[in-house]
Amino acid sequence: MKMISSLFIPILVLVVIIYGAYKKVNVYDSFVSGAKEGLPMVSSMFFSLLAMIFGVNIFLKSGVIDYFFDFLKPILVFINIPLEVLPIAIMRPLSGSFGLALLNDMYKVYGPDSFISVLASVIQGSSDTTLYVITLYFGTVGIKKIKYALWAGLLTDLFMVIIALILVPLFF
């Protein structure tokens, strides 16, 4: 698996360049003019990302999440859900690096092969940072009305966590 992943980029680049040369495209000029689009793209994403990182950071540091956990605890204990994975499950749509930091802590405490760690890894790995994806993609092309995109994304994330809670125990 890792082999495929590490060979994928070199082979892709090579195929594209050789095919371009075979079709008599000036690959160098083509690369440069394509790469030039990077700057306007990055400058149009910067401001929407700034806004979102600003909001998310204040929220993350505020500790509101901890109060929320305390509130949810009795319910989760009642339906037998491991409490340790809750922070990762809730933070996943908001911040990717936050989830990774939490995962790092869990590996340290429980070991990477424990049930809790595997469950958390699967939750982290089976989804993407919904809020970041929405901000980045819609912000860059200038979409203001996102309609039901956020709700559909978050609902899918919730569904993913439920499926993970049901399926991951079957692998042990």
């Binding site: 790995g125 993407d128 993609y137 819609f138 979409i143 994304g153 994330d157």
Partner: peptide, 29 residues
């Protein structure tokens, strides 16, 4: 200014993180 239907569908595909090789998690492991 309004997201089209195809845009939202494309976004949903991306938020699902359809990933066969989660490289960062594997290297952390």
């Amino acid at each position: 200014e309004e997201a089209s239907r195809s845009m939202i569908t494309f976004l949903i595909i991306n938020t699902c993180g359809l990933c066969i090789i989660p490289t960062t998690i594997i290297s952390l492991r």
